[in-house]
Design a protein around this nucleic acid. Structure first.
Lengths: 204, 204
DNA sequence: TCGATACGCAACCGTCCCGTTTCGAAATGC
DNA sequence: GCATTTCGAAACGGGACGGTTGCGTATCGA
């Protein structure tokens, strides 16, 4: 964001201050459009301005670059992670997967995720920001759950945590991607994934 | 594809026949552009024609619709699946994952996959075709491996096969998506995923 | 009150693309 | 030879968009 800092000693520039409302309207417009399935490359400043009820100049005054704008918009997308009750690792993992599943039903989240996943070749900065804002916090939370489980003995102490995280998240994401609608998946998908994972595939 | 059938009894139309070379050049151009990261919506007929060294009319004569063209291009993308040696389920699964990993290094395959995954909302027919051409054959092969393992006793007979498939594929795909380059992943990723999966997470 | 800056709005020109048409040349069947 | 069809190339009118500029207004500090 390119708003002026309010650091002490920094002189506030003369003239009319920038409208925080315009800031928010622009960010919201970007997120809305992305949520409607518009790709980054197809995002037009004009469309954003129109949607935000804002002049194009107001956008160009703040961002010189479309990608900068999208990066800021992505950063504004907060990732509310539920507190894990911690009654058991199994319950925490199931909750974790169900949050992912539920979020994938939100068009905005869904499309942001699509963009982050598919355009990381063309927009590395964007993908990086998304990773930092949305992915890493979740990974950290999941990692904590697993470590706690290793301490309580619910999980083997010698598992490869990074591999386990990839397996857990990947299973849900891949399932969601394999069907048209999240509704097409069994109600208890999260439970089944976690139980299958805990038990392992190997014969007795 | 809109080439003329060669069914017996079908009269061959008069005039100059369509160039098979042009057909192939157009399909290749589409695949090339997609492989370079161009999204479906940004694919322009002009760019395709230029790349293919073909007049726009030659394209419009064959496809009335950009999506039809992309669907045909996708269908032309064959999915060579290796024969599974079948010495053990573990080895087959590792091979399966390593094929996925290796293919994700091919820009063309990678981008086609990106498109199929992220634009299934906007282009359902395209996603469906991709699923049919690329996804289902792999799923069938993987399913066969698991069933064989259940028969030999290498795998529990009571596993949920669909869940297991989601877990196996998802783990690799999700890992690949989590890093910039496939090179950033450990060499033995496939082995580690499979072993972790076979063993399960649960404490002793 | 006055200067400075931001605001929404409209217009501008250049670029890209679309889908169609026209052109002369080439390739086939009759 | 002739009709027919396709070929690549070029051009068309129309539309979308980019990035810039100017306009009149609104909102701040001095």
């Amino acid at each position: 964001m390119m708003t002026y800092g309010t650091v002490e000693g920094t002189a506030r520039p003369a003239g009319r201050p920038r409208s925080a409302k315009a800031d928010q309207a622009i960010i919201d417009a970007v997120l809305d459009l992305i949520g409607e399935g518009v790709g980054v490359s197809e995002l037009s400043i004009e469309a954003i301005a129109t949607r935000a009820g804002v002049g194009k100049t107001t956008i160009y005054r703040r961002w010189s670059n479309k990608e900068d704008l999208v990066v800021d918009a992505l950063a504004a997308l907060k990732a509310p992670l539920p507190a894990f009750p911690g009654t058991s690792v199994r319950d925490d993992l199931i909750l974790y997967l169900n949050v992912i599943r539920q979020e994938s039903g939100n068009p905005r989240t869904r499309c942001v995720m699509n963009i982050a996943m598919s355009e990381q070749d063309r927009h590395p900065r964007l993908a990086e920001r998304f990773h930092e804002v949305a992915v890493e916090p979740r990974r950290a939370a999941l990692r904590a759950v697993l470590h706690r489980g290793m301490e309580t003995g619910e999980i083997r102490r010698d598992i490869d945590v990074e591999i386990a995280m990839a397996v857990i998240g990947g299973a849900m994401v891949w399932s969601l991607k394999s069907v048209r609608e999240a509704k097409d998946l069994p109600e208890d998908l999260a439970e089944r994934i976690v139980d299958e994972l805990m038990a392992g595939l190997a014969g007795r």
